[in-house]
Write a protein that binds this DNA or RNA. Sequence first.
RNA 1: GGAGAGGUGGCCGAGUGGCCGAAGGCGUCCGCCUGCUAAGCGGAUACACGGUUGAAAGGCCGUGUCGAGGGUUCGAAUCCCUCCCUCUCCGCCA
Length: 423
Amino acid sequence: MYTIKFIREHKDELYEALKKRYYPTDVLDKFFELDEKRRKLTTRLQELRTYVNAKSKEIGEKKRAGEDISGILEEMSQIKQEIKSLEKELDDIEEEINLIRYEIPNIPHESVPLGESDKDNVEVRKWGTPEKGKDDVLPHWEIGEKLGILDFERSAKLSGSRFALLRGAGSLMERALINFMLDLHVQKHGYKEIWPPYLVKRDIATATGHLPKFEEDMYHCEKDDLFLVPTAELVLVGLHAGETLREEDLPLYYTAYTPCFRREAGSAGKDTRGLIRRHQFDKVEMVKLTTPETSYEELEKLVANAEEVLQLLGLPYRVIVLSTGDMGFSAAKTYDIEVWMPSYGRYVEISSCSNTADFQARRANVKFVRKDGTKDYVHMLNGSGVAVGRAMAAILENYQTPDGKVIVPEVLRPYMHGIEVIE
RNA sequence: GGAGAGGUGGCCGAGUGGCCGAAGGCGUCCGCCUGCUAAGCGGAUACACGGUUGAAAGGCCGUGUCGAGGGUUCGAAUCCCUCCCUCUCCGCCA
């Protein structure tokens, strides 16, 4: 989210950014119209208040001197009426401006390929060799049920569609994946592990930009006005909301495992089977707070950290950079990592790593003091490291043997009581 | 869930209707002093917004902000209401 001042000072840049993203630019037209009104009203209000303040002092003095003040009091009540009505008008305008501000997306970084949709995304690199096509591999939900480690009938009985229930080695593998990923990021990549609450307050979800835009896709506990986290990003970004950090403390690296809860409104019929799209899934998330100077460098490292998870698991993947038209609202640049999914016969997203630059930091109001005493917004990055359910799905397919077993990737074995094969 | 205490600047803390954007202290910064260090002395030190001036850094004027929102009042950190948060004790509980 941008501040009013920023929008005013970067008018041309923003018009261009919206065009690059194939967004309609009328939000900006509307913004400038309202901002003009807002400033006129503000000026007028301030004039009135100045007058009232001065008169109030005068009243105090006169009263002490025992003079008559009834005339002034009458004038005051009139002006106060006017102030009230102007305040109301200003409130309405400010509310409208704030709603509009939520609709202005981040400015894409210059290195982002121009394009209208996912068709214009650019493949950056590939790792590993997809070995099997869809013909000789059972989709993960079938092999999972056959092996007795996935039970969608029971999960549906308990909670309806788009949930999963893991049993035995499946359950064990979920835990193993989580621990493996956390250990890797904490021990090797230097992230600080956080174990956060899974329910968050409305203002935190607003500060991170998930509200009001995605309210429909979040689970909401009405009685307490708390939201189930759709991603740990929300908590990790919210962690320092409203704080001013010190330059010497940057960069901060955080990682957290959380279950993620999403209503998946608007994705009806998509990926209805298996582990790919569920209302509740597990994810290990990474978030970085950096100085503006290093954020793009840090983004490359962040992607590499996520890639390493897949490399160690031995899962073929590719990295793509999203085009201007396909990028998420708050991202300035996004890499997606897609894992090879034999049953789909294509790559499927398993991680999304973005630099939001100062966009999210403005919204969450996270600043830092430079060594010379000046203040600036931090840059915030986030990435999945990686989606646990999708990783399991990929393992069940990529590690499938012709006789219907699944080999356990070596790095997971220590986390799985040494089990080498699920059969 | 019940009872109580509290939330003021980077921090501590005073302030119960006007002379309070806020005493005092600590910290920080600048200057002075000083073999070095420490101490001492003088000064500065919240944020946002609007206007104005300037090439800019900034300056000047104003408005708002003492947890948040609302109310009373000519005037609120101070009085009233609602909410949030923290702490202590009790109850309950994995």
